[in-house]
């Protein structure tokens, strides 16, 4: 009985953080701050949707063995999502800086001394 509200809470957290990531993507002023909102919030949201699927597969699946298999697959998917999103956003930030975009509203820029 406690599983259904737990799954619903996980789905709601996932949707709220995904929505915040997308609104940050629309709202923030330059590419680096957009990357902040997008990488962190949508990854967190997708992880919580995956957690909801894991809970459902472990406790509410008809065939128990198949449910455990599905949960393991989703767990591997979540780990891959975390590693690849972090590395990919690093690559995009580096490429944006190399292509000549400076952080537009910015307090300090330590990289400008090293890479003009």
């Amino acid at each position: 009985m406690i599983i259904e509200p737990l799954i619903a809470i996980c789905i709601i957290i996932g949707l709220v953080f995904s929505a915040l990531g997308i609104f940050g993507l629309i709202r923030f002023p330059d590419v680096y701050t957009r990357l902040h909102a997008e990488t962190k919030a949508t990854t967190f949201g997708s992880i919580f949707i995956g957690l909801a699927v894991i809970l459902y597969a472990l406790f509410r699946w008809d065939d128990a063995g198949e449910g455990i298999s599905l949960a393991a697959h989703v767990l591997i998917g979540i780990i891959i999502l975390m590693v690849t999103n972090a590395t990919g956003s690093h690559a995009i930030a580096r490429a944006a800086y190399k292509s000549g975009q400076k952080p537009d509203p910015s307090v300090t820029d330590a990289l400008a001394d090293v890479e003009p």
Partner: peptide
């Protein structure tokens, strides 16, 4: 990149 409000640029 995933935690403290930061992002590794280089």
């Amino acid at each position: 990149t995933l935690t403290p409000g930061t992002l590794t640029v280089a």
